[in-house]
Design a protein around this nucleic acid. Sequence first.
DNA 1: GGGACCGGATGCGGATCCTGGTGGTCGAGG
DNA 2: CCTCGACCACCAGGATCCGCATCCGGTCCC
Lengths: 219, 219
Amino acid sequence: MRILVVEDEADLAQAVVDHLRAAGHAVDHASTLDEAQAAVRAMPYALILLDLRLPDGEGLALLRGLRDRRDATPVLIVTARDRITERIAGLEAGADDYLVKPYDLNEMLARINAILRRADGTRAPERRFGGLCISPSARTVTRDGAPVTLTPREWAILDRLSHRPGQVVGKAELEDAVYGFGKEVESNAIEAHVSRLRAKLGRRAVETVRGFGYRMGQG
Amino acid sequence: MRILVVEDEADLAQAVVDHLRAAGHAVDHASTLDEAQAAVRAMPYALILLDLRLPDGEGLALLRGLRDRRDATPVLIVTARDRITERIAGLEAGADDYLVKPYDLNEMLARINAILRRADGTRAPERRFGGLCISPSARTVTRDGAPVTLTPREWAILDRLSHRPGQVVGKAELEDAVYGFGKEVESNAIEAHVSRLRAKLGRRAVETVRGFGYRMGQG
DNA sequence: GGGACCGGATGCGGATCCTGGTGGTCGAGG
DNA sequence: CCTCGACCACCAGGATCCGCATCCGGTCCC
C-alpha cells in the first residue's frame, strides 16, 4: 500500500516513515503543502497522513481539493491537542479520521490499518444498473455505452445510491455523503440533485421511495 | 433510537444525556459497570457510548461480553487522551469508533449518527411470516416473492408488529410508533392503516385481538 | 468576465393521510 | 338462543404533505 506522509517536522516525519516502512508500506514524504499537492497529482495513494499545520499553508486545502475532485483517497489528519475546531472542520471536509499530536506510532498504525481495511471492503470494481455502468475507481459513468459527465455532488449521490443496490437510502444519509457529518441543510438540495441526475441518467435510474429516500436497482 | 450512556462523571454524563435527548434519542444512563451490564441484558440498545474507566471495573469487559455473545450492538468508546494502548485494545475488541476526552458534543453526535446509519444498513435480520419476507434494511416487503410497496405509515406499523412475533401490540403502542410520543389521535387511523396492510399483505397477515390490539405470526 | 455548479425558493401535481359514516362481528348476559 | 352494546373493518372524500421541476442569485474557478 502506497502512503503519503505530509509532515514538516523532520524528526517526526522520519520516525513515521520508518515505522510505516517497517510495517511493509510504500511511503512517500512531503514536507510542504506544495510538495504534497504535486505528489497527489502525480500518483494515486491508498492513504494520506496529513498534518494540518504546514509552513506554506493549511493542510485542509489539500483535503478539500481532493474531495472537490471526488477523490475519495482516505485521509487521516493530524492536529495539535488544543485544535478541536480544526479537527471538526477536517472531518467535515471529508477526513476519515484524525490523530492528536503527539501520537503513539502504534496507534497510528492501528488507525491506518483500520481505515485501509474499511476502504478495501468498499472498493467495488464496477456496478451495473440496466444500461448504466458505474466505475467508482475511475469515477466515470456510461449510459448505454455513452459517457456521462457528472458534477461532484451528483457523483457523490450516485455513488452512495449505487453502493447498496435495492436498498433504500435515506435522505439524511445522502446528506452525510454529500456534505460533512452533522451539517443540517434545510432545503431541497438533495432532491434538486436527484432531479438533475435523472435528467442525465434517465428518469428510471433512481427510484423514489416516498417518505424515506431513494433507491437504485430493483429491490 | 435508544442509546445507553455509560459514564461515571455525573456532570459530563448529564451534558451528554441532555445533548442526545435534544437530538431526539431515547437515552439511558449507567454510572457503573454493574448498572451497564444489567441495562444491556434488560434491553436492546441501538448504540452504547462507553467510558472505559469506571469505578467498579474496565468498560472493556462490557464490550468483550457483548462480542462474545455475538451481539453486534455498535459501541463508541471514550478514553482519556493518554490512554493510547487502551484505545487500541478497544478497537481490537470490536469497538466501532472512539472519542478522546474531552470531546466536543457536536462531534460526538456526528459520529454517533454516522455509526447508527451505517449499522442500520448492515445489521438487518430479515423477518419471515409465512409467505411474507420483511427486510428492514432495504425497507422492502415481499409476498410470495412479489415485492409489495408500503407507505410510510404502513411500514411503521408493520415494522412494529413484526418486531415481536406472536405478541399482542396495543393500539396505543402503535400510535406511538407511527406518530411521535404523546401525540394523541382521536380516530380509527390505526385501524384504517391495518386494513390497508391486510389488503396488501393478505387478510391473515395481521390478526386482530379484540379489545387489545393486533398481532403477527403464530401466537 | 464567463461558465459551471450549487443551493434556496416557488408552484404544481399527486400520493398519502385523516376523518366520518356504515355495516359487520364479537362476546357477555339474560 | 337471543339481544344488546362495544368494537372493528372497510369505503370514500377532502385536506395535507411531499417530491419534482424549474428558476434565480451567489460563488468559485478558469
